[in-house]
Write a protein that binds this DNA or RNA. Structure first.
Lengths: 225, 225
DNA sequence: GCATCTTTATAAAATCTTTATGTCTACAGC
DNA sequence: GCTGTAGACATAAAGATTTTATAAAGATGC
Protein backbone atom coordinates (compact mmCIF):
# COMPACT_ATOMS: atom_id res chain seq x y z
CA UNK A 1 0.00 0.00 0.00
CA UNK A 2 1.17 3.53 -0.70
CA UNK A 3 1.68 5.99 2.05
CA UNK A 4 -1.68 6.97 3.52
CA UNK A 5 -2.57 10.59 3.03
CA UNK A 6 -3.97 12.61 5.90
CA UNK A 7 -5.73 15.94 5.55
CA UNK A 8 -5.53 18.16 8.63
CA UNK A 9 -8.17 20.87 8.93
CA UNK A 10 -7.36 23.05 11.94
CA UNK A 11 -6.91 26.76 12.41
CA UNK A 12 -4.13 26.51 15.01
CA UNK A 13 -0.72 26.29 13.29
CA UNK A 14 0.98 24.69 16.29
CA UNK A 15 -1.57 21.86 16.36
CA UNK A 16 -1.10 21.31 12.63
CA UNK A 17 2.65 21.17 13.16
CA UNK A 18 2.34 18.72 16.05
CA UNK A 19 0.12 16.44 14.00
CA UNK A 20 2.32 16.76 10.94
CA UNK A 21 5.45 15.72 12.82
CA UNK A 22 3.80 12.70 14.38
CA UNK A 23 2.04 11.61 11.22
CA UNK A 24 5.22 11.88 9.20
CA UNK A 25 6.97 9.78 11.84
CA UNK A 26 4.37 7.08 11.16
CA UNK A 27 5.12 7.29 7.45
CA UNK A 28 2.02 9.20 6.40
CA UNK A 29 1.77 12.10 3.98
CA UNK A 30 -0.07 15.21 5.15
CA UNK A 31 -1.88 18.17 3.70
CA UNK A 32 -3.08 21.06 5.76
CA UNK A 33 -5.88 23.56 5.71
CA UNK A 34 -6.47 26.45 8.11
CA UNK A 35 -10.15 26.94 7.41
CA UNK A 36 -13.22 24.99 6.32
CA UNK A 37 -13.41 26.22 2.76
CA UNK A 38 -9.76 25.39 2.09
CA UNK A 39 -10.23 21.99 3.72
CA UNK A 40 -13.18 21.08 1.54
CA UNK A 41 -11.30 22.15 -1.55
CA UNK A 42 -8.20 20.13 -0.67
CA UNK A 43 -10.32 17.10 0.15
CA UNK A 44 -12.09 17.29 -3.21
CA UNK A 45 -8.83 17.68 -5.10
CA UNK A 46 -6.76 15.04 -3.38
CA UNK A 47 -9.18 12.61 -1.68
CA UNK A 48 -7.19 11.81 1.47
CA UNK A 49 -7.39 8.50 3.32
CA UNK A 50 -8.22 10.20 6.61
CA UNK A 51 -9.45 13.66 7.45
CA UNK A 52 -8.61 15.12 10.85
CA UNK A 53 -11.10 17.86 11.47
CA UNK A 54 -11.20 20.54 14.15
CA UNK A 55 -14.71 21.79 14.83
CA UNK A 56 -13.68 25.33 15.78
CA UNK A 57 -12.88 26.90 12.44
CA UNK A 58 -12.81 30.60 11.63
CA UNK A 59 -14.91 30.69 8.46
CA UNK A 60 -17.66 28.10 8.96
CA UNK A 61 -18.99 25.64 11.51
CA UNK A 62 -17.04 22.42 11.78
CA UNK A 63 -20.30 20.49 11.75
CA UNK A 64 -21.13 22.13 8.44
CA UNK A 65 -17.76 21.07 7.02
CA UNK A 66 -18.38 17.56 8.27
CA UNK A 67 -21.80 17.33 6.62
CA UNK A 68 -20.61 18.70 3.30
CA UNK A 69 -17.68 16.32 3.31
CA UNK A 70 -19.89 13.34 4.05
CA UNK A 71 -22.04 14.08 1.00
CA UNK A 72 -19.43 12.30 -1.08
CA UNK A 73 -16.46 11.39 1.08
CA UNK A 74 -16.64 7.84 2.41
CA UNK A 75 -13.34 7.32 4.15
CA UNK A 76 -12.48 8.06 7.75
CA UNK A 77 -13.05 11.40 9.45
CA UNK A 78 -11.55 11.89 12.92
CA UNK A 79 -12.91 14.91 14.72
CA UNK A 80 -10.52 16.63 17.07
CA UNK A 81 -11.97 19.41 19.09
CA UNK A 82 -12.10 21.37 22.28
CA UNK A 83 -14.98 19.63 23.94
CA UNK A 84 -18.16 21.66 24.20
CA UNK A 85 -20.22 19.00 25.95
CA UNK A 86 -21.74 15.65 25.15
CA UNK A 87 -24.17 17.02 22.58
CA UNK A 88 -21.27 18.23 20.48
CA UNK A 89 -19.76 14.75 20.44
CA UNK A 90 -23.05 13.05 19.65
CA UNK A 91 -23.77 15.52 16.86
CA UNK A 92 -20.36 15.00 15.27
CA UNK A 93 -20.61 11.23 15.41
CA UNK A 94 -24.16 11.22 14.06
CA UNK A 95 -23.10 13.52 11.25
CA UNK A 96 -20.72 10.84 10.08
CA UNK A 97 -17.51 11.28 12.06
CA UNK A 98 -15.75 7.98 12.67
CA UNK A 99 -14.17 9.13 15.90
CA UNK A 100 -14.11 12.11 18.23
CA UNK A 101 -11.18 13.05 20.42
CA UNK A 102 -11.20 15.94 22.85
CA UNK A 103 -8.43 18.50 22.97
CA UNK A 104 -6.04 18.41 24.67
CA UNK A 105 -5.34 14.91 23.43
CA UNK A 106 -2.59 12.40 24.04
CA UNK A 107 -0.53 11.92 20.94
CA UNK A 108 -0.09 8.18 21.34
CA UNK A 109 -3.82 7.63 21.64
CA UNK A 110 -4.52 9.88 18.68
CA UNK A 111 -2.08 7.97 16.50
CA UNK A 112 -3.65 4.68 17.57
CA UNK A 113 -7.08 6.03 16.65
CA UNK A 114 -5.80 7.12 13.24
CA UNK A 115 -4.34 3.66 12.69
CA UNK A 116 -7.68 2.15 13.68
CA UNK A 117 -9.57 4.46 11.34
CA UNK A 118 -7.26 3.59 8.44
CA UNK A 119 -7.61 -0.11 9.19
CA UNK A 120 -11.38 0.19 8.99
CA UNK A 121 -11.42 2.26 5.83
CA UNK A 122 -13.62 1.01 3.11
CA UNK A 123 -11.58 -0.87 0.59
CA UNK A 124 -13.67 0.36 -2.31
CA UNK A 125 -12.31 3.63 -3.60
CA UNK A 126 -14.11 6.79 -2.73
CA UNK A 127 -15.61 8.30 -5.80
CA UNK A 128 -16.26 11.95 -6.35
CA UNK A 129 -18.48 11.33 -9.30
CA UNK A 130 -20.43 8.43 -10.65
CA UNK A 131 -21.33 7.85 -14.27
CA UNK A 132 -24.41 5.80 -15.12
CA UNK A 133 -25.08 5.67 -18.83
CA UNK A 134 -25.49 9.23 -20.02
CA UNK A 135 -25.86 10.43 -16.43
CA UNK A 136 -23.03 11.94 -14.46
CA UNK A 137 -23.48 12.51 -10.75
CA UNK A 138 -20.98 14.84 -9.14
CA UNK A 139 -21.19 13.90 -5.47
CA UNK A 140 -18.82 16.62 -4.29
CA UNK A 141 -20.66 19.34 -6.19
CA UNK A 142 -24.14 17.87 -5.70
CA UNK A 143 -24.81 18.31 -9.40
CA UNK A 144 -26.29 15.86 -11.89
CA UNK A 145 -25.67 16.17 -15.63
CA UNK A 146 -27.34 14.33 -18.47
CA UNK A 147 -25.40 14.39 -21.69
CA UNK A 148 -23.49 17.33 -20.25
CA UNK A 149 -26.58 19.39 -19.43
CA UNK A 150 -27.26 20.15 -15.79
CA UNK A 151 -30.50 18.66 -14.48
CA UNK A 152 -32.65 20.58 -12.07
CA UNK A 153 -33.37 18.24 -9.17
CA UNK A 154 -34.96 18.99 -5.82
CA UNK A 155 -33.11 18.09 -2.63
CA UNK A 156 -34.94 14.85 -2.04
CA UNK A 157 -34.71 13.83 -5.67
CA UNK A 158 -30.95 14.33 -5.58
CA UNK A 159 -30.53 12.46 -2.30
CA UNK A 160 -32.46 9.51 -3.65
CA UNK A 161 -30.57 9.42 -6.93
CA UNK A 162 -27.19 9.77 -5.21
CA UNK A 163 -28.00 6.93 -2.83
CA UNK A 164 -29.03 4.67 -5.69
CA UNK A 165 -25.97 5.70 -7.68
CA UNK A 166 -23.57 4.92 -4.85
CA UNK A 167 -25.06 1.44 -4.90
CA UNK A 168 -25.50 1.12 -8.63
CA UNK A 169 -26.17 -2.40 -9.83
CA UNK A 170 -27.68 -3.61 -6.59
CA UNK A 171 -31.24 -3.60 -5.37
CA UNK A 172 -31.98 -1.24 -2.51
CA UNK A 173 -35.08 -2.20 -0.57
CA UNK A 174 -37.97 0.17 0.08
CA UNK A 175 -37.23 0.09 3.79
CA UNK A 176 -33.56 0.92 3.33
CA UNK A 177 -34.19 3.80 0.94
CA UNK A 178 -36.89 5.27 3.18
CA UNK A 179 -34.72 4.97 6.26
CA UNK A 180 -31.75 6.63 4.58
CA UNK A 181 -33.62 9.49 2.94
CA UNK A 182 -36.50 10.22 5.30
CA UNK A 183 -35.19 8.63 8.50
CA UNK A 184 -36.26 5.79 10.73
CA UNK A 185 -40.00 5.78 11.25
CA UNK A 186 -40.75 6.34 7.57
CA UNK A 187 -39.93 2.81 6.52
CA UNK A 188 -43.49 1.98 5.61
CA UNK A 189 -44.20 5.12 3.57
CA UNK A 190 -43.65 3.31 0.29
CA UNK A 191 -45.82 5.79 -1.58
CA UNK A 192 -43.25 8.57 -1.00
CA UNK A 193 -40.78 6.48 -2.93
CA UNK A 194 -43.16 5.87 -5.80
CA UNK A 195 -43.82 9.55 -6.22
CA UNK A 196 -40.14 10.51 -6.21
CA UNK A 197 -39.10 7.62 -8.42
CA UNK A 198 -41.68 8.72 -10.97
CA UNK A 199 -40.38 12.31 -10.82
CA UNK A 200 -36.80 11.16 -11.20
CA UNK A 201 -37.69 9.04 -14.19
CA UNK A 202 -39.25 11.99 -15.93
CA UNK A 203 -35.95 13.80 -15.55
CA UNK A 204 -33.31 11.15 -16.10
CA UNK A 205 -34.89 8.63 -18.45
CA UNK A 206 -35.17 9.08 -22.18
CA UNK A 207 -38.53 7.31 -22.07
CA UNK A 208 -40.07 7.34 -18.61
CA UNK A 209 -42.53 4.63 -19.63
CA UNK A 210 -39.70 2.24 -20.38
CA UNK A 211 -37.02 3.04 -17.83
CA UNK A 212 -33.61 1.70 -18.67
CA UNK A 213 -31.71 2.97 -15.65
CA UNK A 214 -34.06 3.27 -12.72
CA UNK A 215 -35.42 -0.25 -12.48
CA UNK A 216 -38.34 -1.42 -10.36
CA UNK A 217 -37.92 -4.68 -8.51
CA UNK A 218 -41.51 -5.38 -7.60
CA UNK A 219 -42.16 -6.17 -3.98
CA UNK A 220 -38.54 -5.44 -3.06
CA UNK A 221 -37.19 -2.06 -4.11
CA UNK A 222 -35.34 -0.24 -6.87
CA UNK A 223 -32.04 -0.54 -8.67
CA UNK A 224 -29.99 1.91 -10.71
CA UNK A 225 -28.14 0.52 -13.72
CA UNK B 1 -33.51 -4.78 7.80
CA UNK B 2 -33.46 -6.62 11.10
CA UNK B 3 -32.63 -5.26 14.49
CA UNK B 4 -28.89 -4.99 15.10
CA UNK B 5 -27.60 -7.42 17.70
CA UNK B 6 -25.19 -6.27 20.38
CA UNK B 7 -23.11 -8.56 22.58
CA UNK B 8 -22.16 -7.10 25.97
CA UNK B 9 -19.15 -8.65 27.71
CA UNK B 10 -18.77 -7.13 31.17
CA UNK B 11 -18.53 -8.60 34.66
CA UNK B 12 -20.52 -5.85 36.39
CA UNK B 13 -24.24 -6.67 36.29
CA UNK B 14 -25.30 -3.06 36.81
CA UNK B 15 -23.28 -1.94 33.80
CA UNK B 16 -24.80 -4.71 31.71
CA UNK B 17 -28.26 -3.64 32.81
CA UNK B 18 -27.55 0.01 32.02
CA UNK B 19 -26.32 -0.88 28.55
CA UNK B 20 -29.18 -3.27 27.96
CA UNK B 21 -31.83 -0.67 28.79
CA UNK B 22 -30.29 1.97 26.56
CA UNK B 23 -29.62 -0.39 23.68
CA UNK B 24 -33.15 -1.74 23.80
CA UNK B 25 -34.43 1.83 23.72
CA UNK B 26 -32.54 2.26 20.44
CA UNK B 27 -34.24 -0.82 19.05
CA UNK B 28 -31.29 -3.18 19.33
CA UNK B 29 -31.27 -6.75 20.57
CA UNK B 30 -28.73 -7.66 23.25
CA UNK B 31 -26.95 -10.71 24.58
CA UNK B 32 -24.83 -10.64 27.69
CA UNK B 33 -21.80 -12.41 29.05
CA UNK B 34 -20.18 -11.96 32.47
CA UNK B 35 -16.78 -13.36 31.57
CA UNK B 36 -14.44 -13.73 28.61
CA UNK B 37 -15.03 -17.38 27.93
CA UNK B 38 -18.80 -16.97 27.86
CA UNK B 39 -18.45 -13.91 25.65
CA UNK B 40 -16.32 -15.72 23.08
CA UNK B 41 -18.77 -18.59 23.01
CA UNK B 42 -21.79 -16.35 22.53
CA UNK B 43 -20.02 -14.39 19.81
CA UNK B 44 -19.20 -17.57 17.91
CA UNK B 45 -22.74 -18.88 18.12
CA UNK B 46 -24.66 -15.75 17.28
CA UNK B 47 -22.23 -13.41 15.43
CA UNK B 48 -23.45 -10.05 16.76
CA UNK B 49 -23.25 -6.81 14.81
CA UNK B 50 -21.31 -5.07 17.56
CA UNK B 51 -19.40 -6.35 20.59
CA UNK B 52 -19.09 -4.14 23.65
CA UNK B 53 -16.12 -5.41 25.62
CA UNK B 54 -14.92 -4.56 29.10
CA UNK B 55 -11.20 -5.17 29.54
CA UNK B 56 -11.41 -6.06 33.25
CA UNK B 57 -12.83 -9.55 33.20
CA UNK B 58 -12.55 -12.15 35.98
CA UNK B 59 -11.38 -15.16 33.99
CA UNK B 60 -9.04 -13.82 31.34
CA UNK B 61 -7.46 -10.59 30.15
CA UNK B 62 -9.71 -8.38 28.06
CA UNK B 63 -6.89 -7.92 25.58
CA UNK B 64 -6.73 -11.68 25.21
CA UNK B 65 -10.48 -11.81 24.49
CA UNK B 66 -10.05 -9.01 21.96
CA UNK B 67 -7.29 -10.83 20.12
CA UNK B 68 -9.10 -14.14 20.03
CA UNK B 69 -12.24 -12.43 18.78
CA UNK B 70 -10.37 -10.59 16.04
CA UNK B 71 -8.99 -13.82 14.65
CA UNK B 72 -12.31 -14.39 12.93
CA UNK B 73 -14.74 -11.62 13.88
CA UNK B 74 -14.81 -8.73 11.40
CA UNK B 75 -17.52 -6.46 12.66
CA UNK B 76 -17.26 -3.67 15.20
CA UNK B 77 -15.78 -4.05 18.68
CA UNK B 78 -16.21 -1.16 21.11
CA UNK B 79 -13.97 -1.41 24.18
CA UNK B 80 -15.37 0.03 27.36
CA UNK B 81 -13.03 0.05 30.30
CA UNK B 82 -11.75 1.71 33.43
CA UNK B 83 -8.82 3.57 32.02
CA UNK B 84 -5.41 2.28 33.00
CA UNK B 85 -3.38 4.81 31.05
CA UNK B 86 -2.66 5.66 27.47
CA UNK B 87 -0.83 2.41 26.77
CA UNK B 88 -3.98 0.46 27.53
CA UNK B 89 -5.95 2.47 24.98
CA UNK B 90 -3.26 2.19 22.33
CA UNK B 91 -2.94 -1.55 22.91
CA UNK B 92 -6.70 -2.11 22.60
CA UNK B 93 -6.97 -0.05 19.42
CA UNK B 94 -3.94 -1.72 17.87
CA UNK B 95 -5.36 -5.12 18.74
CA UNK B 96 -8.33 -4.37 16.56
CA UNK B 97 -10.83 -2.46 18.68
CA UNK B 98 -12.84 0.02 16.64
CA UNK B 99 -13.29 2.37 19.56
CA UNK B 100 -12.29 2.82 23.18
CA UNK B 101 -14.38 4.58 25.77
CA UNK B 102 -13.27 5.14 29.36
CA UNK B 103 -15.50 4.33 32.29
CA UNK B 104 -17.32 6.15 33.65
CA UNK B 105 -18.85 7.01 30.31
CA UNK B 106 -21.68 9.25 29.19
CA UNK B 107 -24.56 7.21 27.87
CA UNK B 108 -25.43 9.56 25.00
CA UNK B 109 -21.88 9.53 23.71
CA UNK B 110 -21.66 5.77 24.02
CA UNK B 111 -24.85 5.29 22.01
CA UNK B 112 -23.58 7.66 19.34
CA UNK B 113 -20.34 5.67 19.14
CA UNK B 114 -22.31 2.44 18.78
CA UNK B 115 -24.37 4.00 15.98
CA UNK B 116 -21.15 5.10 14.29
CA UNK B 117 -19.68 1.62 14.61
CA UNK B 118 -22.81 0.07 13.11
CA UNK B 119 -22.82 2.56 10.27
CA UNK B 120 -19.29 1.52 9.37
CA UNK B 121 -20.29 -2.12 9.37
CA UNK B 122 -22.85 -1.46 6.66
CA UNK B 123 -20.53 0.18 4.20
CA UNK B 124 -18.14 -2.72 4.42
CA UNK B 125 -20.63 -4.49 2.21
CA UNK B 126 -19.72 -8.09 1.71
CA UNK B 127 -19.74 -8.78 -2.00
CA UNK B 128 -21.02 -12.31 -1.67
CA UNK B 129 -22.00 -14.08 -4.82
CA UNK B 130 -22.53 -17.61 -6.00
CA UNK B 131 -21.69 -18.92 -9.45
CA UNK B 132 -23.56 -21.89 -10.90
CA UNK B 133 -22.57 -22.67 -14.46
CA UNK B 134 -23.31 -19.58 -16.50
CA UNK B 135 -25.42 -18.16 -13.67
CA UNK B 136 -24.13 -15.61 -11.23
CA UNK B 137 -26.17 -14.81 -8.14
CA UNK B 138 -25.22 -11.64 -6.29
CA UNK B 139 -26.71 -12.20 -2.85
CA UNK B 140 -25.87 -8.73 -1.52
CA UNK B 141 -27.27 -6.98 -4.58
CA UNK B 142 -30.17 -9.36 -5.09
CA UNK B 143 -29.31 -9.56 -8.77
CA UNK B 144 -28.99 -12.65 -10.96
CA UNK B 145 -27.00 -12.61 -14.19
CA UNK B 146 -26.85 -15.19 -16.93
CA UNK B 147 -23.82 -14.83 -19.16
CA UNK B 148 -23.50 -11.30 -17.85
CA UNK B 149 -27.06 -10.24 -18.66
CA UNK B 150 -29.35 -9.34 -15.78
CA UNK B 151 -32.33 -11.65 -15.44
CA UNK B 152 -35.70 -10.27 -14.51
CA UNK B 153 -36.96 -12.38 -11.62
CA UNK B 154 -39.94 -11.79 -9.36
CA UNK B 155 -39.41 -11.70 -5.61
CA UNK B 156 -40.48 -15.28 -5.03
CA UNK B 157 -38.51 -16.57 -7.99
CA UNK B 158 -35.38 -14.91 -6.66
CA UNK B 159 -35.92 -16.18 -3.12
CA UNK B 160 -36.34 -19.71 -4.38
CA UNK B 161 -33.30 -19.58 -6.63
CA UNK B 162 -31.12 -18.02 -3.94
CA UNK B 163 -32.14 -20.68 -1.45
CA UNK B 164 -31.31 -23.45 -3.90
CA UNK B 165 -28.03 -21.74 -4.81
CA UNK B 166 -26.93 -21.40 -1.21
CA UNK B 167 -27.36 -25.16 -1.01
CA UNK B 168 -26.10 -25.98 -4.47
CA UNK B 169 -25.46 -29.66 -5.08
CA UNK B 170 -27.76 -30.68 -2.25
CA UNK B 171 -31.35 -31.87 -2.61
CA UNK B 172 -33.82 -29.62 -0.81
CA UNK B 173 -37.12 -31.31 0.00
CA UNK B 174 -40.49 -29.92 -1.02
CA UNK B 175 -41.39 -29.36 2.61
CA UNK B 176 -38.19 -27.47 3.36
CA UNK B 177 -38.45 -25.20 0.33
CA UNK B 178 -42.10 -24.42 1.02
CA UNK B 179 -41.43 -23.70 4.67
CA UNK B 180 -38.52 -21.37 3.90
CA UNK B 181 -40.16 -19.40 1.09
CA UNK B 182 -43.84 -19.35 1.98
CA UNK B 183 -43.64 -20.08 5.71
CA UNK B 184 -44.85 -22.81 7.98
CA UNK B 185 -48.32 -23.93 7.05
CA UNK B 186 -47.58 -24.09 3.32
CA UNK B 187 -45.58 -27.30 3.49
CA UNK B 188 -48.11 -29.30 1.55
CA UNK B 189 -48.64 -26.80 -1.29
CA UNK B 190 -46.35 -28.70 -3.62
CA UNK B 191 -48.08 -27.25 -6.65
CA UNK B 192 -46.73 -23.76 -5.80
CA UNK B 193 -43.27 -25.18 -6.17
CA UNK B 194 -44.00 -26.79 -9.52
CA UNK B 195 -45.29 -23.52 -10.91
CA UNK B 196 -42.30 -21.50 -9.76
CA UNK B 197 -39.74 -24.11 -10.72
CA UNK B 198 -41.21 -24.13 -14.23
CA UNK B 199 -41.00 -20.33 -14.39
CA UNK B 200 -37.42 -20.36 -13.16
CA UNK B 201 -36.43 -22.94 -15.73
CA UNK B 202 -37.80 -20.80 -18.52
CA UNK B 203 -35.52 -18.03 -17.35
CA UNK B 204 -32.32 -19.76 -16.32
CA UNK B 205 -32.13 -22.88 -18.48
CA UNK B 206 -30.95 -22.91 -22.08
CA UNK B 207 -33.52 -25.64 -22.79
CA UNK B 208 -36.31 -25.71 -20.23
CA UNK B 209 -37.40 -29.15 -21.45
CA UNK B 210 -34.03 -30.62 -20.60
CA UNK B 211 -32.92 -28.77 -17.46
CA UNK B 212 -29.24 -29.04 -16.70
CA UNK B 213 -29.16 -26.94 -13.53
CA UNK B 214 -32.50 -27.11 -11.81
CA UNK B 215 -32.92 -30.82 -11.33
CA UNK B 216 -36.08 -32.64 -10.22
CA UNK B 217 -35.62 -35.38 -7.67
CA UNK B 218 -38.91 -37.13 -8.03
CA UNK B 219 -40.83 -37.70 -4.85
CA UNK B 220 -38.26 -35.75 -2.81
CA UNK B 221 -37.51 -32.23 -4.00
CA UNK B 222 -35.17 -30.19 -6.21
CA UNK B 223 -31.46 -29.63 -6.55
CA UNK B 224 -29.40 -26.90 -8.20
CA UNK B 225 -26.22 -27.99 -9.94
C1' DG C 1 -45.84 33.38 -3.81
C1' DC C 2 -43.16 29.86 -5.38
C1' DA C 3 -40.89 25.58 -4.93
C1' DT C 4 -41.12 21.56 -2.65
C1' DC C 5 -43.01 17.92 0.00
C1' DT C 6 -47.04 15.16 1.49
C1' DT C 7 -51.35 13.04 0.72
C1' DT C 8 -55.15 11.23 -1.94
C1' DA C 9 -57.29 8.99 -5.80
C1' DT C 10 -57.31 5.97 -9.55
C1' DA C 11 -55.64 3.37 -13.40
C1' DA C 12 -52.31 0.12 -14.90
C1' DA C 13 -49.09 -3.50 -14.32
C1' DA C 14 -47.04 -7.25 -12.12
C1' DT C 15 -47.28 -11.06 -9.29
C1' DC C 16 -49.32 -14.81 -6.87
C1' DT C 17 -52.81 -18.40 -6.49
C1' DT C 18 -55.77 -21.63 -8.38
C1' DT C 19 -57.61 -24.53 -11.89
C1' DA C 20 -57.31 -27.34 -15.83
C1' DT C 21 -55.01 -30.24 -18.73
C1' DG C 22 -51.24 -32.87 -20.48
C1' DT C 23 -46.89 -35.65 -19.88
C1' DC C 24 -43.95 -38.99 -18.07
C1' DT C 25 -42.77 -43.10 -15.51
C1' DA C 26 -43.57 -47.26 -13.06
C1' DC C 27 -45.91 -51.20 -12.65
C1' DA C 28 -49.69 -54.63 -12.73
C1' DG C 29 -52.52 -57.65 -15.50
C1' DC C 30 -53.61 -59.72 -19.74
C1' DG D 1 -45.13 -57.24 -25.66
C1' DC D 2 -49.17 -54.37 -25.02
C1' DT D 3 -52.45 -51.79 -22.47
C1' DG D 4 -54.42 -49.44 -18.57
C1' DT D 5 -53.97 -47.00 -14.43
C1' DA D 6 -52.09 -44.22 -10.73
C1' DG D 7 -49.00 -40.93 -8.95
C1' DA D 8 -45.84 -37.29 -9.48
C1' DC D 9 -44.56 -33.67 -12.38
C1' DA D 10 -44.85 -29.73 -16.06
C1' DT D 11 -47.15 -26.07 -18.19
C1' DA D 12 -50.51 -22.72 -19.67
C1' DA D 13 -53.79 -19.73 -18.54
C1' DA D 14 -57.66 -17.62 -15.92
C1' DG D 15 -58.82 -15.27 -11.67
C1' DA D 16 -57.60 -12.79 -7.55
C1' DT D 17 -54.65 -9.94 -5.17
C1' DT D 18 -50.95 -6.96 -4.47
C1' DT D 19 -47.92 -3.57 -6.00
C1' DT D 20 -46.73 0.28 -8.83
C1' DA D 21 -47.22 4.65 -11.71
C1' DT D 22 -49.04 9.03 -12.28
C1' DA D 23 -51.61 13.13 -11.87
C1' DA D 24 -53.24 16.35 -9.07
C1' DA D 25 -54.87 18.47 -4.84
C1' DG D 26 -53.54 20.03 -0.26
C1' DA D 27 -49.92 21.44 3.07
C1' DT D 28 -45.67 23.40 4.35
C1' DG D 29 -41.84 26.45 4.55
C1' DC D 30 -38.78 30.04 2.90
Amino acid sequence: MNKPEVLIIDDEPQIRKLLEINLHAQGYLTRQAGCGREGLMLAANHVPDVVMLDLGLPDMSGHEVLMQLREWYQKAIVVLSVEKGEDDIVKALDNGANDYLSKPFRVGELMARVRSALRNNDTRATQQSITVGELEIDLAGRVVKRDGAILKLTGTEYNLLALLARNAGRVLTHGFLLKEIWGVGYQTETQYLRVFIAQLRKKIEADANHPRHLITVSGVGYRLE
